[in-house]
């Protein structure tokens, strides 16, 4: 292969995309490869709820046209699942039996939806909102005026709920301890926030713990949610929005420190000098808090992509995370999160 410096980025989300752009700006000669399990180029997930408003051409969700990558000589290896990283040989092993070498590696694989224990057995009955495809499938399953049941209700889900409501569907929220994730709302403030959601049109059902999810009876909506108290709730589509867990199974055995996420210093370097991490996959050392912690939200993740890329190309800058993490109810009674806003 080429003797050019090879920067490899695992992940095609906000962090990976920003890192690729920064790497190219700072190093016009290197090879840049983005490895992603997805089929599409970088899409704006924040716009994905618009699928429910009838925007079904995936090209409208692309952040960059295909020519962007060709013009910048950035290779995007789609449908490529990394199963292992071998830091000694500096190679990624892909599920399809191919090895890809790297000189500098950025892990920006993001997170997968967290599923509470009680729902894992009925995961196949849940719809997902992780990709354009899953959003389209959910939309097709949702009849006109149909009911979407949202378990948990993290900020990703609440974003979607607004568009789903505006598109003429019914949204029912079953809150749990992950509601408003990544924000942590004090128990005494929770009624205010849930009240704000109700005023916006989301129905909130407080029936305690969910016991199981099952298929609906013939002639009834497709899904039936059964609560511990024996009561139930019917809906056409059920989705769990309970936050994210880092996607880093492939990093086990790679010789870098992992707690819940990949542990990185404020320059986003892992314990391996050739491997960096950015986005939802990493826990960053906070001198202030004397511990590692996650930072979420578009602004933070984008910033991390840029910082990692700069440091991969010889810089020594540190992350400067967006600190305004407070969840607020604005003057019009809507829930707002400056932390979660995106450009």
């Amino acid at each position: 292969m080429s003797s050019r410096m090879h920067h490899v980025i695992i992940g095609n989300g906000v962090a990976g995309d920003q890192a690729a752009a920064t790497l190219r700006e700072r190093d016009s000669d290197s090879r840049i490869t983005i490895v992603t399990a997805g089929t599409l180029l970088f899409t704006n997930r924040y716009k994905l709820p618009q699928v429910f408003a009838g925007k079904t051409d995936w090209r409208e969700y692309l952040v960059h046209p295909p020519s962007y990558y060709e013009e910048r000589d950035i290779t995007v290896r789609r449908r490529s699942v990394v199963i292992r990283v071998d830091p000694d040989r500096r190679v990624l092993v892909l599920q399809h039996h191919e090895e890809v070498g790297y000189d500098r590696l950025l892990v920006a694989a993001g997170g997968a939806a967290y599923l509470p224990e009680a729902l894992r057995e009925s995961a196949h009955l849940l719809d997902s909102f992780a990709t354009f495809r899953s959003a389209m499938i959910a939309r097709e399953r949702l009849p006109d005026g149909g009911t979407l049941i949202m378990l948990g209700g993290d900020m990703i889900g609440l974003d979607m709920a607004r568009t789903v409501l505006a598109s003429g569907y019914r949204v029912v929220l079953v809150p749990n301890e992950r509601t408003f994730w990544p924000h942590q709302v004090a128990a005494e403030e929770l009624p205010d926030y849930l009240g704000a959601l109700e005023r916006s049109g989301i129905e909130v059902v407080r029936k305690g713990p969910v016991e199981r999810l099952e298929e609906g009876a013939a002639g009834r909506p497709d899904r039936r949610l059964v609560f511990a108290d024996g009561s139930d709730l019917e809906g056409d589509v059920v989705m769990a929005f309970c936050g994210l867990v880092p996607s880093l199974g492939f990093m086990h055995g790679a010789g870098v420190d992992i707690e819940r996420g990949l542990l990185v210093n404020p320059e986003l370097r892992t314990t391996n000098e050739r491997i960096w991490a950015a986005g939802d996959v990493c826990q960053i050392w906070s001198e202030e808090e004397k511990g590692y912690r996650f930072y979420y939200g578009w602004k933070n993740v984008k910033m991390m992509g840029e910082v990692a890329a700069r440091n991969m190309t010889g810089d020594h800058v540190q992350v400067d995370t967006f600190k305004d993490e407070k969840l607020v109810i604005d003057a019009e009674g809507r829930i707002d999160s400056p932390y979660w806003r995106y450009d």
Binding site: M1, T75, R77, R78, R79, S80, L94, H96, H97, E98, E99, V100, G101
Partner: peptide, 12 residues
Amino acid sequence: ITMLPEGGHISG
């Protein structure tokens, strides 16, 4: 079925 060198798979 076989292990491929870098660039040996069409996905790249």
